[in-house]
């Protein structure tokens, strides 16, 4: 398929830009290409925001630059706050390239599916980390068990591609709501235990603010944000 050729072109480009020794294409997302490799002997993952031929060049360049820089800032701020995230090794926002440390380990999704004894303890740690992120005004935007990797018994939060900075209770509430929805769709039988430990950890990071956010989560759920609220707006 043509896709393989396209990938090879990108790999050449990455080597030229960053001196990356690519070993494997991890995935071709809608927006970016994920490549595992080595940079100066360090095991890394490169996220390359592919230029889109359907967009005007100027717009495309702006979006790739803006999003790459934002993701790097989110990750940097998260790491400085002590949250387990991949470290930023190299950023070239102009080229849409972000190189991060490779987190080796198993995804939380598979861990839960195969029955993990430490699941609830991990959930508590994840809740704490998300609480710290929210204290810093970092909204992840795509909290799912696919975006948590457990390395040496410690959970890491990855993929801040849909993240943004905000201190609004609403945005924090949506973050938690999406995480719960993801648990419900992927691990229905484990939701109660996992989510309550997650909330415990979240509370210990955020203190009294947590109650406000949790009320918001309930409100978002009750107003059926993804059905009833939108239907009023969608059709005229």
């Amino acid at each position: 398929m043509a896709e393989a050729d396209v990938c090879r072109d990108y790999l050449d480009l990455l080597e030229r830009i960053a001196g990356l020794e690519a070993s494997r294409v991890i995935g071709v997302g809608a927006e970016a290409l994920l490549i595992e490799g080595y940079l100066g002997g360090l095991h890394v993952v490169a996220k390359y925001r592919v230029p889109k031929v359907y967009r005007a060049e100027q717009l495309d360049a702006h979006l790739r630059r803006f999003r790459t820089a934002l993701e790097a800032k989110l990750l940097g701020r998260a790491a400085a706050a002590g949250v387990n995230v991949p470290h930023v090794i190299y950023v070239d926002a102009e080229e849409g390239l972000l190189v991060l440390t490779y987190i080796e380990g198993e995804r939380m999704k598979e861990l839960l599916q195969s029955g993990c004894e430490d699941a609830e303890k991990l959930a508590g740690e994840i809740g704490y980390m998300v609480g710290v992120l929210h204290n810093e005004g970092i909204i992840h935007g795509d909290l799912t068990t696919s975006n948590i990797i457990v390395q040496g018994g410690r959970p890491y939060i990855i993929d801040f591609g849909l993240g943004f900075f905000s201190h609004r209770t609403e945005d924090a509430g949506v973050d938690l709501h999406l995480f719960k929805r993801a648990l419900e769709s992927t691990h229905p039988s484990l939701v109660e235990g996992i989510f309550s430990r997650f909330i415990e950890g979240y509370r210990s990071a955020r203190g009294s603010v947590a109650e406000e956010v949790l009320r918001k989560v309930e409100e978002i759920r009750m107003r059926g944000r993804y059905v009833a609220q939108r239907r009023r707006k969608l059709f005229w």
Partner: peptide, 18 residues
């Protein structure tokens, strides 16, 4: 036109990838 259409094509691409 560029902005409005590009937004739409981007979400279409997400759906295709997903």
């Amino acid at each position: 036109v560029e902005t409005a259409y590009s937004m739409l094509v981007e979400v279409a691409e997400r759906a295709l990838a997903h």
